[in-house]
């Protein structure tokens, strides 16, 4: 990472971003007020693209029709990643499917 880059502050900002997504308002209480070394690891948003994708998540609005497994396989191929999994979708409709 670049010189003069405040990794500690950027890290704090990122953790606040993460908490804001679901409106988590509980406070972080410090035990050791210590900086983090910008030479190791990454602020998640600033990971190089290949690393970024490997630690990534896609929140998919799955169209009705294809199964979750099919959608996962398509996205996997599009993104060129080796492993992917899904966290579940809606229960299927009970109405029969009409063909033609």
């Amino acid at each position: 990472m670049e010189e003069g880059f405040d990794a500690t502050r950027e890290g704090e900002k990122f953790v606040e971003d993460v908490k804001r997504i679901c409106g988590n308002t509980s406070r972080l209480l410090k035990k050791f007020d210590e900086p983090t070394d910008p030479r190791h690891g990454f602020i998640p948003k600033m990971r190089p693209l290949d690393v970024y994708l490997r630690y990534g998540l896609v929140v998919v609005d799955k169209p009705p029709g294809p199964t979750s497994h099919e959608v996962v396989a398509w996205i996997k191929r599009m993104l060129g990643v080796e492993r992917a999994g899904h966290g579940g979708t809606l229960e299927p409709p009970r109405a029969p499917r009409y063909s033609g």
Binding site: F14, V15, V18, K19, R20, I21, C22, N24, S26, L28, F32, E34, T36, D37, H40, P44, K45, R47, Y52, L53, Y55, G56, L57, V58, V59, L79
Partner: peptide
């Protein structure tokens, strides 16, 4: 693609030293 970290928003966090 969003950082996977977003998925732990609701979990209480413990930050560790380098």
């Amino acid at each position: 693609v969003v950082p996977g970290e977003y998925s732990v928003c609701h979990l209480p966090k413990v930050l560790v030293r380098d």
